[in-house]
Computed example of a mutant assay.
Amino acid sequence: MTREDAALLSRVESLLADPAHARHPLRQALEALYHHHLEEKARLERLVSISDGYQRLAVENQQSARQGYDKIRRRQEKLSRISDGYQQLMREHNLALARDSTHDSLTGLPNRRMVDEHLKQEAQRATRHAAPYTLAILDIDHFKRINDRHGHEIGDRVLVAIARVMQGELREYDLCARWGGEEFLLLLAETRLEEARTILTRLLRRLAAVSIEVGDATLSITASAGLSEHRAGEDPLDDTLQRADRALLQAKRSGRNRCCITPTRG
Protein backbone atom coordinates (compact mmCIF):
# COMPACT_ATOMS: atom_id res chain seq x y z
CA MET A 1 0.00 0.00 0.00
CA THR A 2 1.29 3.41 -0.95
CA ARG A 3 1.49 6.35 1.40
CA GLU A 4 -1.39 8.09 -0.47
CA ASP A 5 -3.60 4.97 -0.15
CA ALA A 6 -2.91 4.76 3.56
CA ALA A 7 -3.74 8.45 4.04
CA LEU A 8 -7.02 8.04 2.12
CA LEU A 9 -8.09 5.06 4.23
CA SER A 10 -7.23 6.91 7.41
CA ARG A 11 -9.42 9.85 6.25
CA VAL A 12 -12.31 7.52 5.43
CA GLU A 13 -12.03 5.85 8.82
CA SER A 14 -12.08 9.28 10.50
CA LEU A 15 -15.21 10.31 8.56
CA LEU A 16 -16.99 7.07 9.47
CA ALA A 17 -16.03 7.44 13.11
CA ASP A 18 -17.20 11.12 13.32
CA PRO A 19 -20.75 11.26 14.88
CA ALA A 20 -21.39 14.44 12.96
CA HIS A 21 -21.67 12.39 9.78
CA ALA A 22 -23.83 9.64 11.26
CA ARG A 23 -26.94 10.76 9.38
CA HIS A 24 -25.16 11.80 6.19
CA PRO A 25 -26.91 10.24 3.16
CA LEU A 26 -23.59 8.97 1.76
CA ARG A 27 -22.27 7.49 5.02
CA GLN A 28 -23.87 4.09 4.46
CA ALA A 29 -22.47 3.85 0.93
CA LEU A 30 -19.04 5.01 2.13
CA GLU A 31 -19.04 2.45 4.93
CA ALA A 32 -20.05 -0.33 2.52
CA LEU A 33 -17.32 0.73 0.12
CA TYR A 34 -14.82 0.84 3.00
CA HIS A 35 -15.67 -2.69 4.19
CA HIS A 36 -15.60 -3.93 0.61
CA HIS A 37 -12.15 -2.44 0.24
CA LEU A 38 -11.01 -4.18 3.44
CA GLU A 39 -12.36 -7.50 2.21
CA GLU A 40 -10.69 -7.08 -1.16
CA LYS A 41 -7.48 -6.09 0.57
CA ALA A 42 -7.64 -9.19 2.79
CA ARG A 43 -8.43 -11.36 -0.25
CA LEU A 44 -5.53 -9.84 -2.15
CA GLU A 45 -3.21 -10.40 0.82
CA ARG A 46 -4.31 -14.06 0.96
CA LEU A 47 -3.66 -14.41 -2.75
CA VAL A 48 -0.26 -12.78 -2.35
CA SER A 49 0.47 -15.10 0.58
CA ILE A 50 -0.61 -18.13 -1.45
CA SER A 51 1.46 -16.92 -4.40
CA ASP A 52 4.48 -16.35 -2.16
CA GLY A 53 4.04 -19.81 -0.66
CA TYR A 54 3.75 -21.34 -4.11
CA GLN A 55 6.84 -19.50 -5.27
CA ARG A 56 8.76 -20.63 -2.17
CA LEU A 57 7.60 -24.18 -2.81
CA ALA A 58 8.60 -23.90 -6.46
CA VAL A 59 12.01 -22.54 -5.49
CA GLU A 60 12.44 -25.28 -2.89
CA ASN A 61 11.39 -27.92 -5.41
CA GLN A 62 13.75 -26.41 -7.96
CA GLN A 63 16.60 -26.38 -5.45
CA SER A 64 15.74 -29.92 -4.40
CA ALA A 65 15.65 -31.02 -8.04
CA ARG A 66 18.95 -29.26 -8.70
CA GLN A 67 20.49 -30.87 -5.63
CA GLY A 68 19.16 -34.23 -6.76
CA TYR A 69 20.52 -33.65 -10.25
CA ASP A 70 23.90 -32.55 -8.86
CA LYS A 71 23.96 -35.65 -6.64
CA ILE A 72 23.18 -37.91 -9.59
CA ARG A 73 25.74 -36.07 -11.75
CA ARG A 74 28.44 -36.46 -9.09
CA ARG A 75 27.57 -40.13 -8.73
CA GLN A 76 27.76 -40.61 -12.50
CA GLU A 77 31.10 -38.78 -12.61
CA LYS A 78 32.38 -41.00 -9.81
CA LEU A 79 31.17 -44.11 -11.63
CA SER A 80 32.78 -42.82 -14.84
CA ARG A 81 36.10 -42.31 -13.04
CA ILE A 82 35.84 -45.78 -11.54
CA SER A 83 34.99 -47.23 -14.95
CA ASP A 84 37.83 -45.34 -16.65
CA GLY A 85 40.25 -46.46 -13.94
CA TYR A 86 39.07 -50.06 -14.27
CA GLN A 87 39.42 -49.97 -18.06
CA GLN A 88 42.91 -48.47 -17.76
CA LEU A 89 43.79 -51.16 -15.22
CA MET A 90 42.49 -53.85 -17.58
CA ARG A 91 44.49 -52.38 -20.49
CA GLU A 92 47.64 -52.33 -18.37
CA HIS A 93 46.88 -55.85 -17.14
CA ASN A 94 46.38 -57.13 -20.68
CA LEU A 95 49.59 -55.43 -21.84
CA ALA A 96 51.43 -56.98 -18.89
CA LEU A 97 49.98 -60.40 -19.73
CA ALA A 98 50.95 -59.97 -23.37
CA ARG A 99 54.48 -58.98 -22.38
CA ASP A 100 54.76 -61.79 -19.84
CA SER A 101 53.75 -64.27 -22.51
CA THR A 102 56.62 -63.17 -24.78
CA HIS A 103 59.33 -62.03 -22.33
CA ASP A 104 61.38 -63.61 -19.56
CA SER A 105 60.28 -62.26 -16.18
CA LEU A 106 63.84 -62.14 -14.73
CA THR A 107 65.92 -60.59 -17.51
CA GLY A 108 63.19 -58.88 -19.53
CA LEU A 109 64.53 -60.55 -22.68
CA PRO A 110 62.25 -62.22 -25.22
CA ASN A 111 61.44 -65.84 -24.42
CA ARG A 112 61.07 -68.97 -26.56
CA ARG A 113 57.56 -68.04 -27.70
CA MET A 114 58.71 -64.75 -29.16
CA VAL A 115 61.80 -66.38 -30.67
CA ASP A 116 59.64 -68.92 -32.47
CA GLU A 117 57.66 -66.12 -34.13
CA HIS A 118 60.80 -64.22 -35.12
CA LEU A 119 62.44 -67.35 -36.51
CA LYS A 120 59.40 -68.06 -38.69
CA GLN A 121 59.44 -64.49 -40.01
CA GLU A 122 63.19 -64.53 -40.57
CA ALA A 123 63.03 -67.88 -42.37
CA GLN A 124 60.29 -66.55 -44.68
CA ARG A 125 62.28 -63.39 -45.36
CA ALA A 126 65.41 -65.40 -46.06
CA THR A 127 63.47 -67.56 -48.54
CA ARG A 128 61.93 -64.58 -50.36
CA HIS A 129 65.00 -62.35 -50.49
CA ALA A 130 67.87 -64.82 -50.06
CA ALA A 131 68.86 -62.83 -46.95
CA PRO A 132 71.34 -64.57 -44.66
CA TYR A 133 71.07 -64.81 -40.89
CA THR A 134 73.02 -66.60 -38.20
CA LEU A 135 71.87 -68.21 -34.96
CA ALA A 136 74.05 -68.35 -31.88
CA ILE A 137 73.60 -70.23 -28.62
CA LEU A 138 75.43 -68.63 -25.69
CA ASP A 139 75.90 -70.48 -22.42
CA ILE A 140 77.35 -69.15 -19.14
CA ASP A 141 80.42 -71.12 -18.14
CA HIS A 142 80.16 -73.07 -14.87
CA PHE A 143 76.80 -71.51 -14.00
CA LYS A 144 75.81 -74.45 -11.79
CA ARG A 145 78.98 -73.89 -9.78
CA ILE A 146 77.97 -70.24 -9.29
CA ASN A 147 74.54 -71.25 -7.97
CA ASP A 148 75.98 -73.95 -5.72
CA ARG A 149 78.66 -71.70 -4.19
CA HIS A 150 76.83 -68.38 -3.97
CA GLY A 151 73.14 -69.18 -4.16
CA HIS A 152 70.43 -68.59 -6.73
CA GLU A 153 70.12 -64.89 -5.91
CA ILE A 154 73.67 -64.33 -7.14
CA GLY A 155 72.93 -66.58 -10.10
CA ASP A 156 69.97 -64.36 -10.98
CA ARG A 157 72.19 -61.28 -10.74
CA VAL A 158 74.60 -62.90 -13.18
CA LEU A 159 71.80 -63.61 -15.65
CA VAL A 160 70.52 -60.04 -15.43
CA ALA A 161 74.03 -58.61 -15.87
CA ILE A 162 74.65 -60.73 -18.96
CA ALA A 163 71.29 -59.77 -20.43
CA ARG A 164 72.12 -56.07 -20.02
CA VAL A 165 75.50 -56.46 -21.67
CA MET A 166 74.05 -58.30 -24.65
CA GLN A 167 71.27 -55.75 -25.10
CA GLY A 168 73.88 -52.99 -25.10
CA GLU A 169 76.33 -54.70 -27.44
CA LEU A 170 74.05 -56.12 -30.12
CA ARG A 171 72.55 -54.19 -33.00
CA GLU A 172 69.00 -52.87 -32.95
CA TYR A 173 67.77 -55.40 -35.52
CA ASP A 174 69.33 -58.41 -33.72
CA LEU A 175 67.26 -60.49 -31.34
CA CYS A 176 68.62 -61.66 -28.00
CA ALA A 177 66.44 -64.04 -25.98
CA ARG A 178 66.68 -66.17 -22.89
CA TRP A 179 66.46 -69.68 -24.22
CA GLY A 180 66.34 -71.46 -20.89
CA GLY A 181 68.34 -71.67 -17.68
CA GLU A 182 71.74 -70.13 -18.38
CA GLU A 183 71.39 -70.32 -22.17
CA PHE A 184 70.69 -67.38 -24.48
CA LEU A 185 69.77 -67.44 -28.15
CA LEU A 186 70.92 -64.72 -30.54
CA LEU A 187 69.35 -64.14 -33.93
CA LEU A 188 71.75 -62.05 -36.01
CA ALA A 189 69.76 -60.80 -38.98
CA GLU A 190 71.39 -60.20 -42.37
CA THR A 191 74.63 -61.58 -41.00
CA ARG A 192 76.99 -64.12 -42.51
CA LEU A 193 78.84 -66.62 -40.35
CA GLU A 194 82.23 -64.88 -40.26
CA GLU A 195 80.70 -61.51 -39.37
CA ALA A 196 78.66 -63.24 -36.67
CA ARG A 197 81.81 -64.78 -35.22
CA THR A 198 83.38 -61.32 -34.99
CA ILE A 199 80.29 -60.01 -33.19
CA LEU A 200 80.25 -62.93 -30.73
CA THR A 201 83.98 -62.74 -30.06
CA ARG A 202 83.60 -59.08 -29.14
CA LEU A 203 80.57 -59.89 -26.99
CA LEU A 204 82.39 -62.65 -25.10
CA ARG A 205 85.26 -60.26 -24.33
CA ARG A 206 82.75 -57.76 -23.02
CA LEU A 207 81.11 -60.39 -20.82
CA ALA A 208 84.48 -61.46 -19.43
CA ALA A 209 84.95 -57.89 -18.21
CA VAL A 210 81.76 -58.03 -16.14
CA SER A 211 82.21 -58.48 -12.41
CA ILE A 212 79.63 -59.21 -9.71
CA GLU A 213 80.30 -58.15 -6.13
CA VAL A 214 79.68 -61.05 -3.73
CA GLY A 215 80.39 -59.88 -0.22
CA ASP A 216 84.08 -58.98 -0.10
CA ALA A 217 84.82 -60.99 -3.25
CA THR A 218 84.38 -60.25 -6.94
CA LEU A 219 82.84 -62.83 -9.23
CA SER A 220 83.99 -62.92 -12.85
CA ILE A 221 81.91 -64.32 -15.68
CA THR A 222 82.73 -66.05 -18.93
CA ALA A 223 80.54 -67.63 -21.57
CA SER A 224 80.80 -69.97 -24.53
CA ALA A 225 78.93 -69.70 -27.82
CA GLY A 226 78.13 -71.83 -30.84
CA LEU A 227 77.16 -70.30 -34.19
CA SER A 228 75.48 -71.59 -37.31
CA GLU A 229 74.37 -69.76 -40.45
CA HIS A 230 70.93 -70.64 -41.76
CA ARG A 231 70.92 -72.68 -44.95
CA ALA A 232 68.23 -72.24 -47.59
CA GLY A 233 65.34 -74.65 -47.15
CA GLU A 234 66.27 -75.92 -43.69
CA ASP A 235 64.18 -75.61 -40.54
CA PRO A 236 65.60 -72.95 -38.18
CA LEU A 237 64.99 -74.96 -35.00
CA ASP A 238 65.48 -78.51 -36.18
CA ASP A 239 68.50 -77.81 -38.36
CA THR A 240 70.18 -74.39 -37.93
CA LEU A 241 69.82 -74.28 -34.15
CA GLN A 242 70.88 -77.89 -33.72
CA ARG A 243 74.11 -77.18 -35.57
CA ALA A 244 74.69 -74.10 -33.38
CA ASP A 245 74.14 -76.29 -30.34
CA ARG A 246 76.78 -78.75 -31.56
CA ALA A 247 79.17 -75.84 -32.10
CA LEU A 248 78.48 -74.72 -28.50
CA LEU A 249 79.39 -78.17 -27.24
CA GLN A 250 82.62 -77.96 -29.19
CA ALA A 251 83.39 -74.56 -27.60
CA LYS A 252 82.91 -76.00 -24.11
CA ARG A 253 85.05 -79.04 -24.86
CA SER A 254 87.75 -76.74 -26.24
CA GLY A 255 88.16 -74.90 -22.95
CA ARG A 256 85.15 -72.53 -22.74
CA ASN A 257 85.16 -68.72 -22.98
CA ARG A 258 85.19 -68.91 -26.77
CA CYS A 259 82.89 -69.28 -29.76
CA CYS A 260 82.91 -72.04 -32.33
CA ILE A 261 81.12 -72.28 -35.67
CA THR A 262 79.72 -74.94 -37.88
CA PRO A 263 80.67 -74.75 -41.54
CA THR A 264 78.23 -73.09 -43.89
CA ARG A 265 78.27 -76.27 -45.92
CA GLY A 266 78.79 -79.84 -44.82
Rank of each mutant, 00 (worst) to 15 (best):
G85W: 04
R145D: 09
T127L: 05
G108H: 08
T107A: 05
L138P: 02
Y133R: 03
Q124W: 03
V158I: 10
I140S: 04
R113V: 08
K78Y: 10
H103V: 06
R113H: 11
D104W: 09
L97P: 13
L119Y: 00
L95F: 10
D174M: 08
R99M: 04
M114I: 14
R157A: 13
I50G: 09
A130V: 07
M90P: 08
V59S: 09
Q67E: 01
S101G: 09
A65L: 15
S105H: 10
H118M: 06
Q63L: 05
R112C: 12
R128K: 00
R157T: 04
D174C: 07
Y173P: 01
L106R: 06
R56H: 09
V158M: 07
D139K: 14
R81W: 06
R81D: 14
L135N: 04
R112K: 01
D116N: 11
L109W: 00
H93I: 15
R113W: 04
I82T: 11
L57S: 12
N111R: 08
E122Y: 10
D148I: 13
R99K: 07
L170A: 04
S101I: 13
N147D: 08
L79S: 03
S101F: 02
H129R: 02
E153V: 15
R112I: 05
Q167T: 03
L170K: 03
D100K: 11
E77W: 08
C176A: 10
G108N: 01
L106E: 08
R74W: 05
N111F: 06
Q62S: 15
G168V: 01
Y173F: 12
G180I: 06
D174G: 11
Y86N: 10
A96R: 14
R145F: 06
A131I: 00
I72K: 09
R73H: 04
L138D: 09
L57H: 07
I137A: 01
P132I: 08
D100R: 06
M90D: 09
I137C: 02
Q63K: 10
G85F: 02
Y173R: 15
E92N: 15
S64D: 11
